[in-house]
Every structure is written in C-alpha cells, then in structure tokens.
Nucleic acid binder design. Structure first.
Length: 415
RNA sequence: GCGGUAUUGGUGAAGUGGUAACACGGUAGAUUGUGGCUCUAUUAUGCGUGGGUUCGAUUCCCACAUACCGCCCCA
C-alpha cells in the first residue's frame, strides 16, 4: 500500500464537511467587513521568503520546502502567505489605492516533525490590510479573528497581545536583553544559549526555563517602547475594550517571524488537549515589510488561522456544521426511465434528492432511508409508472398519498 | 533535527511460535409493494512494508514507513 507522505492529511466525512463549512463561513464573514479575496501562487522564488519572513526565523532556516526547478531556479513552496501577499500587492501596484483589505486561504508547507494539529501541508486562512495605521483598526482586525472563531462555536478563547514597538524600540530592547542575559547564560538551557545568538527575544518564550527567576526578572518590552509605541499600545487596549474583545497582556509573546512591529497577538483555545496546537490564530502589525520588499513605506497588519487546528478544536468542542439534509428519497423499484426523470425534475426544482442506483430491493432501500432521514419518500413501482402518478410517503406520519405526475412539484412545494 | 510509544478487517478491538475471539457496520434471506425490531447466513489465505531466525512467524530479531507524545518551532 502506498501511504500518504509524512505530515499530510486526508479529510473526509464529518471533518471534511467541517473544513468546507469553516472556509465558506469565514469567507462570507470577511466580505461583511469589505475584505476582498486574493489568490497567490503556491510557490515563489526562494528569495522572497528569505527576505520576507527573515533569515533568522526557523521557518526559513530549517523548514522551507525549497527545490530547484528545471531551469535551476530556486523555488519555495509557500511557508506562509504574508510575504506572497505583499509581493502581489507591490507587483500589481495596488498601492495606487490608499487602503487595501485582503483575505486568502490555501495550503502552506513547512518541513517539520508532524504531530496532531501540526502538518507539513496545512491550510491557512488569513487577512492582510495595507495602508492603515490606527490602533482602533488593529483592534478591529483582532476582533474579526476573535468573532469568527467565537461565532463558529469555540468558547473559552483567550486573546493574548503584546507590543514589540517600532524598529528603534525593538533594537533597544534586544540590546537590553543581551546585556541582561549575557552574564547569566550558564544558568539557561542549551536551546536558550543558542537563542541568545540567533534571536534573543525567543528566550522569553522558553518552556524549559519558564519558571526560571532569570526569565521572570528579565527586562520587559513595555519599558523599552518609544513614547509613540507605548501610546499606540495603550489606545489599542482601550479599543479592544470598546469592541468587547477579552484579552490578556503577555509580555513574553514575541512571535517567530522577523517582520512584526508594534502589535502582535495570538488566540489560544484554553480547554484543548492539543498542547501547542491550541494556538489557532496568530498575527500582528508589520510596518516595515512592504518597505523591505518594495522600498515604499506602507503600514500593514494581518493574521492567520490554522484551519486544520480549527477543525480539530471544533471537533473537540463538539461543534457540528449545518448539515444539508436530504429532502426527498426516490425509491426506484425497477422503473428506471420514469424514476430518473422524476429525480432530475426534483433536483431542477431545488429539492435535495437522493435515489438508488444499484437496483436494490425495497427493504434495502428503506434501510438507506433510515440513514438519510428525508422528509418524503417517493415510491415508484410498476403501478405508478403505468398510471403516471407517484406515491408520496410522509416520512414523519408514514402516510401515503397518490399524486399525479403533472402536479408533483406543485404538491411538494406546498407541503 | 533529537528522544519516546504505537501499527491486527470498513470501524472499535482480543490474541498466540503452529496457522486470527468478540462487538458494531456491510451484504443476502426469513418478509415476491412498504422499512427502522428480531432471527439466520455471510463478511481478514491475512495481522504497516521489506528482510532475517525457525520445520513453521501476525507473534522473536533488524531495517524502513507512517501515526501519536515530548523537545525545537509554529497555524
């Protein structure tokens, strides 16, 4: 047997249905906020992600699905969407409009060790908004993510926020951390010693050392924010209160991608057994990325939701998508011509219709009816075909009624 | 990339160095045009894949694959 590649996922049955439901639900939700759907390539030149996501991030360092194409160009399967959306935004000169609000969904790829809620090919649904820098807007973006997830049926979501500050405050903070940690390195775990060189911020996130006094007493981001960033963060918190989004400040929330500035946030599902996979949404502001890739100063903010994780969490929370129940079952008892004509007619009139294609016995077909639980069963046998009528059985009252072929649609529409 | 656990039919699973319980589901019949209950029959020449040990392996050994857990990291 050929098995699916490591870290990929088959979705079918209830989970497949939930997956589809979740995507269409979130799409229509975003349309309400006047966000527009964008589609970008599944792979891009590797250079884009190296510059966009950042060479110091693990995503670029060890998780990229890159390959040489037949002309020896280095390509990478998208590990996330933001860099690609920014590229699209620049390449098509969409900045001629002052503001742009986009949403997207599709597969992303990271070469990781898989676990539940963590795959090598996974689906992201997210938004990116360009041209607006306003804490009230940041709050709205966070509230969109929060509301969508809540509306879908997840309770006990926690929104965690933090501010990384603008470039200068971020650098000042990093330097402060380096100075603070340098004499204490021997007391930190091995990973943290590496992080000291690659990305000091991440030391704050360490799980091994999380109870370590050294971390608890480390300098806090907020003390290194510029006046401007500090005020921005304060207004953001006010705005979140106005929009009734419950949140927690988490000063060790730093995010793993290099491009974030000022506002960062994550949405976590508390009741989950999924451990790290309970982070269902993450995002933040990235005011320097457009300039980094296109030499134009345009502020931007976005977030991304892990759709497979969302499906898992909805499953855990026992949330079921709305089911398209079958309206009518056509019981064909050896009268193919007449029966299939009626099936087609019903579907053309908008009834969700099912029938038997295997010439099963009446008893077997009634068994199928039990699973489908339609509102009505149309019985079509020899008598009906000859007499040009059908027997309509009400599946609730079990009553039968003869209805002429010509009056069938009208009759079914009435009841 | 590192460490650990697991892998038996459509599903949940029991089991043993000598040839795969049980339950659910599926199919057919009892019941030739009215079901959902009940009863009966049937449903893996095969126990992740490939090697090895053995008279004989699903059971022991090795490798690989995949899943899950922890780390790393992230959605």
């Amino acid at each position: 047997m050929i098995q699916k590649p490591k870290g990929t996922l088959d979705l079918y049955g209830l989970e497949g249905k939930t997956y589809e439901y979740v995507l269409s639900y979130m799409s229509s939700f975003l349309n309400m906020y006047n966000y527009n759907y964008v589609k970008i390539p599944t792979f891009e030149t590797s250079e884009l992600y190296k510059r966009g996501v950042g060479e110091s991030s693990d995503i670029v360092n060890k998780e990229m699905y890159d390959f040489l194409d037949k002309s020896d160009r280095s390509m990478t399967l998208r590990p996330e969407f933001t860099a690609g959306v920014v590229r699209m935004f620049l390449e098509n000169k969409l900045y001629s409009k002052e503001t742009n609000k986009f949403y997207y969904y599709g597969s992303a790829f990271r070469y990781e060790r898989p676990q539940s809620g963590r795959y090598r090919e996974f689906t992201q649904f997210g938004v990116e908004a360009f041209g607006i820098k306003n804490p009230y807007f940041d709050a709205e973006v966070i509230s969109i993510a929060y509301k969508m997830l809540t509306d879908l049926g997840l309770k006990d979501l926690v929104v965690q926020i933090n501010s990384l500050g603008d470039n200068s405050s971020r650098e000042a903070y990093k330097n402060a951390l380096r100075e603070y940690f340098k004499p204490k390195l021997d007391n930190l775990c091995e990973d943290c010693k590496n992080r000291f060189n690659t990305n000091v911020l991440r030391i704050l996130d360490c799980k091994v050392d999380k109870d370590n006094e050294i971390l608890k007493n480390a300098p806090k981001t907020l003390n290194y924010l510029s006046e401007e960033s500090k005020e921005y963060f304060d207004i953001l918190k006010t705005a979140l209160n106005v929009l009734e989004v419950p949140f927690e400040e988490n000063t060790s929330l730093v995010r793993g991608l290099d491009y974030y500035t000022d506002t960062v946030f994550e949405i976590v599902y508390k009741d989950s057994n999924l451990g790290n996979a309970s982070v269902v949404c993450g995002g933040g502001r990235y005011d320097n990325l457009v300039n980094e890739l296109g030499k134009i100063n345009i502020p931007a903010i976005g977030f991304s939701i892990g759709v497979e994780r969302l499906v898992l969490l909805l499953n855990e929370a026992n949330v079921k998508p709305i089911d398209n129940k079958v309206d009518i079952y056509v019981m064909n008892l050896g009268q193919d011509k007449y029966a299939y004509e009626i099936v087609d007619m019903l579907r053309n009139s908008g009834f969700i219709t099912e029938t038997d294609y295997l010439n099963k016995s009446m008893k077997a077909q009634f068994k199928l009816v039990d699973d489908l639980n339609p509102d009505y069963i149309l019985i079509i046998g020899e008598d009906e075909a000859k007499g040009n009528y059908v027997t309509v059985k009400d599946n609730l009252t079990k009553e039968n009624k003869k209805v002429e072929f010509d009056e069938l649609i009208e009759y079914l529409s009435m009841i």
